[in-house]
């Protein structure tokens, strides 16, 4: 067993500095790396580029980094629900690159799996494809999209073992597995860190080879963005 365990979030984030590009897992506030985000706020590193499907809300998730103006550029598919984000975007303090959600996932996965680029039909004929190479396959048009290049990927999993094997829970899985191994260093925080052998190898979602550092996170808030319930008649 090759151990990937580090003691705490400070050790896990060793080596991060100003101007880096980060990938952050999560969809909305579900499955976001809460501990890594708190540590990035504490370290107060600046001029960051963040690749993340969303940008959090004003006082949680990536919104915390936006409040402290640590982010120069966001690469996302959907960025509503965040007034400070909107203010920075409209005042051009923040650069925003909006890309289709499936393309975001594919560009992460391409980086993870060694493809320099992939062809996707998404965005063909729209402003998303402007300036990009296009090609026809079997009568349909596709856009060439390049693999992301990132320094760190910050991942949230449900359970993991010391070897870095991971299991995700529910729809908190989302972008987390596709960002593992897609950056130079993959840092994973889990709700429950267990010994090797405790997780059934048949049910591992991401093998430890894609992970460099793993630690057990603390004090998960797991905030719900849109609590919606039905009334039972």
């Amino acid at each position: 067993m090759i151990s990937k365990t580090v003691n705490n979030v400070a050790e896990a984030l060793e080596g991060v500095h100003d101007g880096m590009t980060f990938m952050l897992g999560g969809f909305g506030l579900s499955g976001i790396p809460e501990n890594a985000i708190s540590e990035l706020v504490r370290l107060n590193i600046k001029n960051l580029t963040c690749i993340s499907n969303n940008a959090g809300v004003d006082d949680f998730g990536l919104g915390l980094l936006l409040q402290k103006k640590q982010i120069d550029k966001m690469v996302s598919s959907y960025v509503g629900e965040n007034a400070e984000f909107e203010r920075q975007m409209l005042s051009e303090e923040l650069e925003v690159e909006l890309i289709p959600q499936g393309t975001l996932a594919a560009r992460c996965q391409a980086a993870q799996q060694g493809f320099p680029a992939i062809y996707t039909p998404a965005g063909y004929g729209t402003e998303v494809a402007m300036g990009k190479e296009t090609r026809e396959f079997d009568g349909k048009m596709y856009v060439l999209e390049e693999a992301f290049k990132a320094d760190f990927a910050f991942i949230k999993a449900w359970k993991g073992d010391r070897a870095g094997n991971l299991i995700f829970k529910g729809t908190a899985r989302n972008f987390n597995p596709v960002m593992c191994g897609a950056a130079k260093v993959t840092v994973v925080e889990v709700e429950e860190l267990v010994e090797p052998g405790e997780l059934d190898p048949n049910f591992i979602h991401i093998p430890g080879i894609f992970v460099q550092r793993i630690f057990e996170g603390k004090d998960y808030e797991k905030r719900i963005e849109k609590r919606t319930v039905r009334t039972v008649v």
Binding site: L29, Q101, A105, G170, R173
Partner: peptide, 26 residues
């Protein structure tokens, strides 16, 4: 919090449901 839809609303999973990552989803 670990079970939402694409509109970020809380949902439920029916018997026979499955979860997957964003790359597989697209």
């Amino acid at each position: 919090a670990d079970l939402i839809n694409a509109g970020k609303q809380t949902i439920t999973a029916l018997p026979g449901a499955s979860f997957f990552d964003s790359a597989l989803s697209f």
